[in-house]
C-alpha cells in the first residue's frame, strides 16, 4: 500500500488548553501533524485520554483550538459524524446479547438495525464476532468486549477511529491480527492509538505525539520523534568483557540509557560524545570493539525520555 492511497488526517492545535473543573491538565501551544495511524504515547497520567476526549469534543476548551481535519478536503472533522471511539475496556451492555447491542448501534448510526447483516457484515466476519452474537454482554472477556466495540466502530465507517490502549492484554497473535486490521483499513480511515506497547506502535504508526505532564514534548514521524526524544544510539559490539564494560559505562555515563543486549552494549541519549565513549571503552579493552552510530528505537527513545525526565 503506497502512502498516497492512505486516508490521512491532520491534527492541528493552537494555544489549546483544557482540563477538568477549571484546572488545566493539557496544554498544546502549537501542533500540526498529518498521518494515517497516529500514535499517542506518554507515561500514565501524561494526558493521553484528555487529548483523546478533547478530539472527541467531550472536554471544553479553556483557550485555543484542537481539531482534526481531512487532508484531502481540508474539512474539519465533526466527532459525532466522522469519529468512532473504542475504550480500553471495550463496551457492551451486560444484560443484552451482543447481537442486540450491535443492532442498536446499527439503528443509531447506520439507520437500519440490520445494517450489520448487510453492508456491515464484512466487519462482523473480519473481527470474528459471529460466534459472540448470541452471548450476553456479561459473558464476554475483556478482549471480546473490545472486539465487539471495534466492530461497532468499523460499522459506522468513521474517517477517524480512536483507540484507547487497544493492545493492552493481547497476546502476540491477537496483537498481530489487530495491527494487520488497522493497516488493512488505512485506505478508508485514519486511526489514533494510545499504547504503552512501543514495539507495536513503531511498527504500525507513521506519526506519533508524545505527551509528558500534560504537554506535547514531541510530535512527528516516528524517526524524528525518536531523535527528538533520545538523540541517537551508539552500539558497541565485539566486546571481550561486556559485563565489566557495562558496569564501567553505567558509572561513567549516568545520564544515558545503557543496555546490555547479549554480547552488545547500546548507549542511547542526546549528544553522546562518541570519543569519550571510545576512551572509556579503551580502558577495558583496547582493541577489537566496533562502534556503530544508529537511530534509537521508539522503545529506547521512550525509555531514555522517561529515565531522564
Amino acid at each position: 500500500m503506497t502512502q498516497a492511497h492512505l486516508k490521512r488526517i491532520e491534527i492541528r492545535a493552537k494555544s489549546f488548553k483544557t482540563g477538568y473543573e477549571g484546572h488545566s491538565v493539557l496544554e498544546c501551544n502549537s501542533l500540526e501533524l498529518t498521518g494515517s495511524i497516529v500514535a499517542l504515547i506518554g507515561h500514565n497520567g501524561a494526558g493521553k485520554s484528555t487529548l483523546m476526549k478533547s478530539l472527541l469534543g467531550l472536554l471544553p476548551s479553556y483557550s485555543g483550538t484542537l481539531d482534526a481535519f481531512c487532508t484531502e478536503t481540508q474539512r474539519k472533522l465533526i466527532p459525532e459524524q466522522d469519529m468512532a471511539f473504542c475504550p480500553e475496556t471495550g463496551a457492551v451492555f451486560a444484560d443484552i446479547s451482543v447481537e442486540s447491542y450491535i443492532s442498536l448501534w446499527s439503528r443509531i448510526k447506520c439507520g437500519s438495525a440490520k445494517y450489520y447483516l448487510q453492508e456491515g457484515a464484512r466487519y462482523i466476519e473480519e473481527l470474528e464476532i459471529g460466534p459472540l452474537l448470541k452471548k450476553l454482554g456479561r459473558e464476554l472477556s475483556k478482549g471480546e468486549r473490545r472486539r465487539v466495540q471495534t466492530a461497532v466502530g468499523f460499522l459506522t465507517t468513521p474517517s477517524f477511529f480512536l483507540f484507547d490502549e487497544p493492545f493492552d492484554g493481547l497476546d502476540v497473535r491477537k496483537t498481530h491480527e489487530l495491527s494487520t486490521l488497522l493497516q488493512a483499513h488505512q485506505e478508508k480511515m485514519s486511526f489514533l492509538v494510545t499504547s504503552h506497547r512501543m514495539d507495536v506502535i513503531e511498527r504500525i504508526a507513521d506519526v506519533a505525539i508524545v505527551l509528558k505532564d500534560g504537554a506535547v514534548v514531541s510530535a512527528g514521524d516516528i524517526d524524528s520523534v525518536c531523535s527528538d526524544l533520545a538523540g541517537h544510539s551508539v552500539e558497541i559490539s565485539d566486546i571481550d568483557q561486556p559485563e565489566r564494560l557495562y558496569a564501567v559505562l553505567s558509572n561513567a555515563l549516568p545520564d544515558y540509557l545503557i543496555e546490555h543486549i547479549g554480547a552488545r552494549i547500546q548507549i542511547t541519549g542526546k549528544e553522546i560524545d562518541v570519543e569519550m565513549v571510545r576512551s572509556t571503552c579503551a580502558q577495558i579493552d583496547e582493541v577489537g570493539m566496533t562502534f556503530q552510530r544508529s537511530q534509537p528505537s521508539l522503545v529506547d527513545a521512550m525509555n531514555y525520555h522517561l529515565q531522564t525526565s
Binding site: L58, M83, F85, P87, A91, V92, F93
Partner: peptide, 20 residues
C-alpha cells in the same frame, strides 16, 4: 449506571454527540 457500567457511555456520547 446502566450505560457507564457497560463501558458504552464514552463511545456512545462520542458517536452521538454530548447534547443529543
Amino acid at each position: 449506571d446502566y450505560f457507564s457500567k457497560s463501558g458504552a457511555l464514552l463511545p456512545m456520547v462520542a458517536a452521538i454527540g454530548k447534547r443529543e
